[in-house]
Design a protein around this nucleic acid. Structure first.
Lengths: 240, 240
DNA sequence: TGCCGTTGATTGTCAGACAGTCATATAGTC
DNA sequence: GACTATATGACTGTCTGACAATCAACGGCA
């Protein structure tokens, strides 16, 4: 009767019980939940019952609740007063807004990268593309493509050297991941993406900040467009 | 021995004890603390000792802690493990980053406003300027100017109709308020601001989204520049 | 003067309790 | 049999008290 989540098929994240290590326990709890949400093991609309979480993660209710506040502030969880937390879901409209915001922020990041980075960073950035190309050519699963693309972003953020912008971007990225579809699931999109990133790296290499920013914004908008189109033909989210 | 904050001179916000009303208690606590921080009644660097907060606000430690997690996620409070929460402080560099991000986001908002709003909204937006002008001409205190400007933003955000962008902007705005100086404390800056906003409204009225976005970004950058210049000649933040 | 152990202040976490509220199942009514 | 009023159960919101672990400051000692 309880333990609904634990019984859920394929709920692999339940294995991640909490063990007392360095970081505050609540941060570990947040991380586990955050990851489960972003990776869609916890589905949008799904209730997060405190008692179930405490049983599953073996921590006290107080700790779980503090974590939930954190996730709430990040927009990954929605709290309905007197009803508790549910995994957040976003509307198409919100998703569109988030993509727009991402375009703006990422452009800024690219601009920063161009302005303040050195040849070494540019080389490293360019170096992240070949693995991506190989993954695409080999028809690897979406997860691996995303991982490869993450490395691109890692270098970009590192070079832009702005914790503020990094934080902003990752919170936006987490929220769009609430949509089930990635633009990368659309046929042909991975190749397009690679082309866009290649062009972007080209502009960065030429130290053309304006052009790079423009390409970047366009890239995000394209991703958003395909992703949302993809989404439009899937089933609706889990009802409350 | 306890009650240090309550005894603090001029700590007017302490009067705001919690009373049980509709919203969850923790939200009231968050609001009180957030406001106290943004209005600089709690200074950057100041420790927020849980016991003192519970005494002052008359709520349990659990409730206070949940609020602190929320403020932490908003970036208004920094938590040092095993030492607890302190009011966040930001470096000049971070502040500059935030202003840049604000410029990007606000431009987007203005663009949205132009794209999707009607004459009525534009009139309302223009209508917020005269009170601002009067406040400036009458040499009213900075607080009142800020309030008048807030009304301008209210209309703008309302017309842009995007909760995502509103949330983003207000979190950025809260964080820069951690700097003590407002650009408005600089001599002549209020008048400049008014001129910039007037030009902005003009572009919006003409439905020129590009120009409006450009003016808006410029406005934010100007505000950032003066604000940070102002800041540079004040005393350093309260040490930990 | 500078190192080190003691002490006090606080945080991190836990368990248990209880009122209030929402949703649902149950019983009673027409 | 459909419909409403009520009882029940499942949870959340909040509080209290407790205790180990850690940090910071103090004072003693070399």
């Amino acid at each position: 009767m309880t333990d609904k989540i634990r019984e859920a098929p394929g709920a692999s994240w339940t294995a991640a019980r909490m063990s007392r290590v360095a970081a505050p326990l609540r941060d570990q709890v947040s991380s586990v939940l955050r990851q489960a949400i972003v990776e869609r093991e916890l589905r949008p609309g799904q209730r997060l019952v405190e008692r179930e979480l405490t049983d599953m993660l073996q921590v006290s209710r107080a700790t779980v609740r503090e974590s939930l506040r954190e996730l709430e502030a990040e927009g990954l969880v929605t709290v309905i007063p007197q009803r508790g937390a549910v995994v957040a879901s976003i509307s198409m409209k919100e998703a569109a807004d988030i993509y727009e915001a991402r375009a703006a922020i990422e452009s800024l990041i690219v601009r920063r990268f161009v302005e303040r980075t050195d040849e070494e960073h540019i080389r490293r950035l360019a170096g992240t593309l070949p693995p991506l190309r190989e993954a695409i050519d080999a028809g690897r699963p979406v997860g691996e493509l995303l991982a490869a693309k993450d490395r691109f972003y890692d270098v970009l953020l590192d070079g832009a050297d702005s914790s503020v912008l990094s934080t902003l971007l990752s919170s936006l990225q987490a929220r769009v991941s609430l949509l089930r579809a990635t633009s990368l699931t659309a046929a042909g999109r991975p190749a397009e993406m690679l082309a866009e990133l290649t062009a972007l790296v080209g502009a960065i290499g030429a130290r053309d900040a304006d052009e790079a920013a423009r390409l970047c914004a366009e890239h995000v908008r394209n991703a958003g467009r395909t992703g949302m189109a993809e989404l439009a033909r899937e089933e609706p989210p889990v009802p409350a």
